[in-house]
Computed example of a mutant assay.
Amino acid sequence: MAVAVPILPSQQLAALNDAYRKAVAKKRLRLTLGMAVFFAALVAASIGAEVNLRTLFTYFGHFVSYFDRILTLEDGTRVWTNVGEWLWGWRKWSLLLGETILISYVGTLFGALLAFALNFLAAENTSPAPWLRFVIKRLLEFCRTVPGIVFALIFVIAFGLGPMAGVLAIALHSIGALAKQYAEMVENIDMKPVEGVRSTGASWLSCMRFAVLPQVAAGFASYTLLRFEINVREASVMGFVGAGGIGTELVMAVRKFYYSDVSAILLMIVLTVFAIDIGTGWVRERLLGKDRRA
Protein backbone atom coordinates (compact mmCIF):
# COMPACT_ATOMS: atom_id res chain seq x y z
CA MET A 1 0.00 0.00 0.00
CA ALA A 2 1.53 3.31 -1.04
CA VAL A 3 1.90 5.99 1.61
CA ALA A 4 1.81 9.59 0.54
CA VAL A 5 4.66 11.72 1.89
CA PRO A 6 3.58 15.30 2.46
CA ILE A 7 5.85 17.91 0.85
CA LEU A 8 6.22 21.20 2.65
CA PRO A 9 5.83 24.43 0.74
CA SER A 10 9.12 25.65 -0.69
CA GLN A 11 9.11 28.77 1.46
CA GLN A 12 8.64 26.81 4.69
CA LEU A 13 11.20 24.20 3.59
CA ALA A 14 13.73 26.90 2.83
CA ALA A 15 13.19 28.38 6.31
CA LEU A 16 13.76 24.99 7.95
CA ASN A 17 16.91 24.38 5.87
CA ASP A 18 18.20 27.80 6.79
CA ALA A 19 17.59 27.15 10.50
CA TYR A 20 19.34 23.78 10.21
CA ARG A 21 22.38 25.32 8.50
CA LYS A 22 22.59 28.00 11.20
CA ALA A 23 22.42 25.37 13.95
CA VAL A 24 25.16 23.31 12.30
CA ALA A 25 27.32 26.39 11.77
CA LYS A 26 26.84 27.39 15.42
CA LYS A 27 27.82 23.91 16.57
CA ARG A 28 30.92 23.90 14.37
CA LEU A 29 31.87 27.33 15.66
CA ARG A 30 31.64 26.13 19.26
CA LEU A 31 33.73 23.08 18.39
CA THR A 32 36.35 25.21 16.63
CA LEU A 33 36.55 27.65 19.54
CA GLY A 34 36.79 24.77 22.00
CA MET A 35 39.64 23.19 20.04
CA ALA A 36 41.41 26.55 19.80
CA VAL A 37 41.15 27.05 23.58
CA PHE A 38 42.36 23.49 24.17
CA PHE A 39 45.45 23.88 21.98
CA ALA A 40 46.18 27.33 23.44
CA ALA A 41 46.06 25.84 26.95
CA LEU A 42 48.24 22.93 25.78
CA VAL A 43 50.86 25.31 24.39
CA ALA A 44 50.78 27.47 27.54
CA ALA A 45 51.11 24.39 29.76
CA SER A 46 54.00 23.08 27.65
CA ILE A 47 55.83 26.38 27.95
CA GLY A 48 55.19 26.53 31.69
CA ALA A 49 56.38 22.95 32.16
CA GLU A 50 59.41 23.61 29.93
CA VAL A 51 58.50 20.83 27.51
CA ASN A 52 61.07 20.99 24.73
CA LEU A 53 60.63 18.52 21.88
CA ARG A 54 64.16 19.20 20.66
CA THR A 55 65.58 18.20 24.04
CA LEU A 56 63.30 15.17 24.12
CA PHE A 57 64.51 13.83 20.78
CA THR A 58 68.13 14.80 21.46
CA TYR A 59 68.38 12.85 24.71
CA PHE A 60 65.89 10.10 23.96
CA GLY A 61 68.82 7.81 23.23
CA HIS A 62 69.94 8.07 26.85
CA PHE A 63 66.55 6.73 27.91
CA VAL A 64 66.84 3.79 25.52
CA SER A 65 70.46 3.10 26.48
CA TYR A 66 69.48 2.87 30.16
CA PHE A 67 67.10 0.04 29.36
CA ASP A 68 69.92 -1.57 27.39
CA ARG A 69 72.19 -1.38 30.46
CA ILE A 70 69.66 -2.81 32.93
CA LEU A 71 69.13 -5.78 30.60
CA THR A 72 72.86 -6.55 30.50
CA LEU A 73 74.88 -8.49 33.08
CA GLU A 74 78.33 -7.43 34.24
CA ASP A 75 80.01 -9.85 31.83
CA GLY A 76 78.27 -8.17 28.88
CA THR A 77 75.69 -10.90 28.20
CA ARG A 78 71.95 -10.40 28.25
CA VAL A 79 70.13 -11.09 31.50
CA TRP A 80 67.97 -13.85 30.07
CA THR A 81 71.05 -15.88 29.09
CA ASN A 82 71.91 -16.44 32.76
CA VAL A 83 68.74 -16.22 34.83
CA GLY A 84 70.46 -17.54 37.94
CA GLU A 85 72.97 -14.70 37.92
CA TRP A 86 70.24 -12.16 37.06
CA LEU A 87 67.92 -13.20 39.89
CA TRP A 88 70.68 -13.97 42.38
CA GLY A 89 68.92 -12.11 45.21
CA TRP A 90 65.40 -13.38 44.63
CA ARG A 91 65.06 -14.73 48.20
CA LYS A 92 65.94 -11.39 49.80
CA TRP A 93 63.84 -9.48 47.27
CA SER A 94 60.88 -11.79 47.83
CA LEU A 95 60.97 -11.06 51.55
CA LEU A 96 61.05 -7.33 50.84
CA LEU A 97 58.19 -7.72 48.37
CA GLY A 98 56.22 -9.54 51.04
CA GLU A 99 56.92 -6.62 53.38
CA THR A 100 55.64 -4.23 50.71
CA ILE A 101 52.43 -6.23 50.33
CA LEU A 102 51.94 -6.31 54.10
CA ILE A 103 52.49 -2.55 54.32
CA SER A 104 49.85 -2.08 51.63
CA TYR A 105 47.45 -4.54 53.25
CA VAL A 106 47.63 -3.05 56.76
CA GLY A 107 47.57 0.53 55.47
CA THR A 108 44.61 -0.20 53.20
CA LEU A 109 42.74 -1.96 56.01
CA PHE A 110 43.16 0.93 58.46
CA GLY A 111 42.36 3.46 55.76
CA ALA A 112 39.24 1.58 54.68
CA LEU A 113 37.96 1.29 58.25
CA LEU A 114 38.32 5.02 58.91
CA ALA A 115 36.95 5.89 55.46
CA PHE A 116 33.94 3.68 56.17
CA ALA A 117 33.32 5.55 59.41
CA LEU A 118 33.65 9.00 57.81
CA ASN A 119 31.94 8.60 54.44
CA PHE A 120 28.41 8.64 55.86
CA LEU A 121 29.22 11.97 57.50
CA ALA A 122 30.56 13.35 54.21
CA ALA A 123 27.71 12.21 51.93
CA GLU A 124 25.13 14.91 51.29
CA ASN A 125 22.11 12.65 51.77
CA THR A 126 23.27 10.99 55.00
CA SER A 127 25.30 13.63 56.86
CA PRO A 128 23.60 14.70 60.11
CA ALA A 129 24.57 18.38 59.75
CA PRO A 130 25.90 20.64 56.96
CA TRP A 131 28.74 22.01 59.12
CA LEU A 132 29.89 18.49 59.94
CA ARG A 133 29.84 17.52 56.26
CA PHE A 134 31.91 20.61 55.42
CA VAL A 135 34.56 19.79 58.05
CA ILE A 136 34.79 16.12 57.07
CA LYS A 137 35.09 16.91 53.36
CA ARG A 138 37.93 19.37 53.97
CA LEU A 139 39.71 16.78 56.11
CA LEU A 140 39.35 14.14 53.39
CA GLU A 141 40.56 16.58 50.75
CA PHE A 142 43.70 17.18 52.79
CA CYS A 143 44.33 13.44 53.15
CA ARG A 144 44.11 12.70 49.44
CA THR A 145 45.72 15.93 48.16
CA VAL A 146 49.07 15.46 49.87
CA PRO A 147 51.02 12.76 47.94
CA GLY A 148 51.56 9.52 49.80
CA ILE A 149 55.34 9.73 49.45
CA VAL A 150 55.26 13.13 51.20
CA PHE A 151 53.34 11.60 54.10
CA ALA A 152 55.90 8.77 54.13
CA LEU A 153 58.78 11.25 54.33
CA ILE A 154 57.11 13.09 57.22
CA PHE A 155 56.48 9.85 59.11
CA VAL A 156 60.05 8.66 58.49
CA ILE A 157 61.29 11.86 60.10
CA ALA A 158 58.85 11.39 62.99
CA PHE A 159 59.08 7.62 63.61
CA GLY A 160 62.31 6.63 61.89
CA LEU A 161 63.06 4.32 58.98
CA GLY A 162 60.94 1.23 58.52
CA PRO A 163 57.54 -0.14 57.54
CA MET A 164 55.59 1.82 60.15
CA ALA A 165 56.06 5.06 58.21
CA GLY A 166 54.81 3.33 55.05
CA VAL A 167 51.74 1.92 56.79
CA LEU A 168 50.76 5.31 58.21
CA ALA A 169 51.29 7.05 54.88
CA ILE A 170 49.24 4.45 52.99
CA ALA A 171 46.48 4.59 55.60
CA LEU A 172 46.24 8.37 55.61
CA HIS A 173 46.12 8.69 51.84
CA SER A 174 43.64 5.80 51.58
CA ILE A 175 41.26 7.51 54.01
CA GLY A 176 40.88 10.50 51.70
CA ALA A 177 40.61 8.47 48.48
CA LEU A 178 38.28 5.74 49.73
CA ALA A 179 36.00 8.01 51.76
CA LYS A 180 35.35 10.12 48.66
CA GLN A 181 34.50 7.05 46.58
CA TYR A 182 32.34 5.61 49.35
CA ALA A 183 30.49 8.91 49.82
CA GLU A 184 29.77 9.22 46.10
CA MET A 185 28.25 5.75 46.14
CA VAL A 186 26.11 6.63 49.14
CA GLU A 187 24.90 9.83 47.46
CA ASN A 188 23.58 7.74 44.53
CA ILE A 189 21.58 5.21 46.54
CA ASP A 190 17.81 4.82 46.48
CA MET A 191 16.51 6.87 49.42
CA LYS A 192 13.17 5.05 49.69
CA PRO A 193 14.53 2.32 52.02
CA VAL A 194 16.12 5.04 54.15
CA GLU A 195 12.81 6.89 54.43
CA GLY A 196 11.05 3.64 55.28
CA VAL A 197 13.45 2.79 58.11
CA ARG A 198 13.42 6.38 59.34
CA SER A 199 9.59 6.37 59.47
CA THR A 200 9.72 3.63 62.10
CA GLY A 201 11.55 5.99 64.45
CA ALA A 202 14.92 4.28 63.96
CA SER A 203 18.11 6.13 64.84
CA TRP A 204 20.60 7.51 62.33
CA LEU A 205 22.91 4.56 62.90
CA SER A 206 20.07 2.12 62.29
CA CYS A 207 19.23 3.87 59.01
CA MET A 208 22.83 3.52 57.88
CA ARG A 209 23.00 -0.11 58.96
CA PHE A 210 19.72 -1.41 57.56
CA ALA A 211 18.90 0.94 54.65
CA VAL A 212 22.18 2.32 53.27
CA LEU A 213 24.82 -0.33 53.88
CA PRO A 214 23.03 -3.20 52.05
CA GLN A 215 22.93 -1.05 48.89
CA VAL A 216 26.63 -0.17 48.88
CA ALA A 217 28.44 -3.05 50.62
CA ALA A 218 29.56 -4.79 47.42
CA GLY A 219 30.72 -1.52 45.90
CA PHE A 220 32.65 -0.64 49.05
CA ALA A 221 34.47 -3.96 48.93
CA SER A 222 35.22 -3.53 45.23
CA TYR A 223 36.72 -0.07 45.71
CA THR A 224 38.75 -1.30 48.68
CA LEU A 225 40.28 -4.10 46.61
CA LEU A 226 41.08 -1.64 43.85
CA ARG A 227 42.74 0.67 46.38
CA PHE A 228 44.80 -2.23 47.73
CA GLU A 229 46.12 -2.86 44.23
CA ILE A 230 47.04 0.83 43.88
CA ASN A 231 48.65 0.88 47.31
CA VAL A 232 50.99 -1.99 46.43
CA ARG A 233 52.48 0.23 43.73
CA GLU A 234 52.51 3.20 46.13
CA ALA A 235 54.32 1.19 48.80
CA SER A 236 56.96 0.09 46.27
CA VAL A 237 57.85 3.74 45.69
CA MET A 238 57.71 4.76 49.36
CA GLY A 239 60.79 2.69 50.00
CA PHE A 240 62.70 5.42 48.19
CA VAL A 241 62.40 7.60 51.32
CA GLY A 242 63.08 4.76 53.75
CA ALA A 243 59.50 3.67 54.45
CA GLY A 244 60.35 -0.03 54.11
CA GLY A 245 59.66 -2.64 51.47
CA ILE A 246 61.24 -3.42 48.12
CA GLY A 247 61.60 0.25 47.21
CA THR A 248 64.55 0.61 49.58
CA GLU A 249 66.45 -2.13 47.74
CA LEU A 250 65.47 -0.69 44.35
CA VAL A 251 66.70 2.82 45.09
CA MET A 252 69.93 1.38 46.47
CA ALA A 253 70.50 -0.57 43.26
CA VAL A 254 69.82 2.56 41.20
CA ARG A 255 72.24 4.68 43.24
CA LYS A 256 75.01 2.06 43.11
CA PHE A 257 74.51 1.47 39.36
CA TYR A 258 73.67 -2.22 39.80
CA TYR A 259 71.87 -2.22 36.47
CA SER A 260 70.89 -5.89 36.25
CA ASP A 261 69.59 -5.77 39.84
CA VAL A 262 67.33 -2.86 38.86
CA SER A 263 65.72 -4.87 36.06
CA ALA A 264 65.39 -7.97 38.27
CA ILE A 265 63.66 -6.05 41.07
CA LEU A 266 61.41 -4.26 38.58
CA LEU A 267 60.47 -7.61 37.05
CA MET A 268 59.47 -9.00 40.44
CA ILE A 269 57.44 -5.89 41.26
CA VAL A 270 55.64 -6.01 37.90
CA LEU A 271 54.83 -9.73 38.24
CA THR A 272 53.56 -9.15 41.79
CA VAL A 273 51.32 -6.29 40.67
CA PHE A 274 50.04 -8.43 37.77
CA ALA A 275 49.13 -11.25 40.16
CA ILE A 276 47.39 -8.87 42.59
CA ASP A 277 45.56 -7.16 39.72
CA ILE A 278 44.26 -10.47 38.38
CA GLY A 279 43.26 -11.70 41.85
CA THR A 280 41.50 -8.52 42.97
CA GLY A 281 39.85 -8.16 39.56
CA TRP A 282 38.38 -11.65 39.87
CA VAL A 283 37.08 -10.89 43.37
CA ARG A 284 35.59 -7.56 42.24
CA GLU A 285 33.76 -9.25 39.39
CA ARG A 286 32.32 -11.80 41.80
CA LEU A 287 31.19 -9.11 44.21
CA LEU A 288 29.60 -6.89 41.58
CA GLY A 289 28.07 -9.88 39.82
CA LYS A 290 26.44 -11.02 43.03
CA ASP A 291 25.15 -7.48 43.61
CA ARG A 292 23.60 -7.35 40.12
CA ARG A 293 21.90 -10.72 40.52
CA ALA A 294 20.38 -9.53 43.78
Rank of each mutant, 00 (worst) to 15 (best):
Y258L: 11
E187C: 01
R69M: 09
F155V: 08
D190P: 01
I276D: 02
A45G: 04
A2L: 11
F60R: 04
M35K: 08
V194R: 12
S127D: 06
F240K: 03
N52T: 03
N52H: 12
L113H: 02
L121Q: 08
F39I: 11
V150Q: 11
W86M: 03
G245N: 02
L29N: 12
C143E: 04
L132S: 06
V251I: 15
V106R: 10
F116S: 13
S206F: 03
H62P: 01
T272W: 08
L114W: 07
S222Y: 05
W90K: 07
P9C: 00
V64W: 13
K180F: 01
V194Q: 12
T248L: 09
W90C: 01
N52D: 15
T145W: 04
A44K: 07
G201H: 00
E141M: 08
V262S: 09
T145G: 03
L31R: 14
T72G: 06
G279A: 15
A44E: 02
T224E: 04
G242S: 00
G247L: 10
R198F: 01
L31C: 03
V216K: 09
K180G: 03
I154Q: 10
T280M: 04
D75E: 09
Y223D: 07
A122V: 01
I246S: 06
A218Y: 10
F110T: 04
A275R: 11
V64M: 13
S94W: 00
A217P: 00
V237W: 01
A122P: 01
M268Y: 02
E229V: 03
D291Y: 06
F120T: 13
L226M: 10
V254G: 11
T81S: 15
K26E: 14
D261F: 02
V83P: 02
S94E: 01
V241Q: 00
L109W: 08
A14E: 14
N125W: 02
G160D: 05
V146A: 10
I170T: 11
L87G: 00
A183W: 05
L109A: 14
L225E: 04
I154W: 13
L132W: 06
A23L: 14
T126R: 10
A15Q: 15
V51C: 03
I175S: 08
S263Q: 14
V283L: 15
V273F: 07
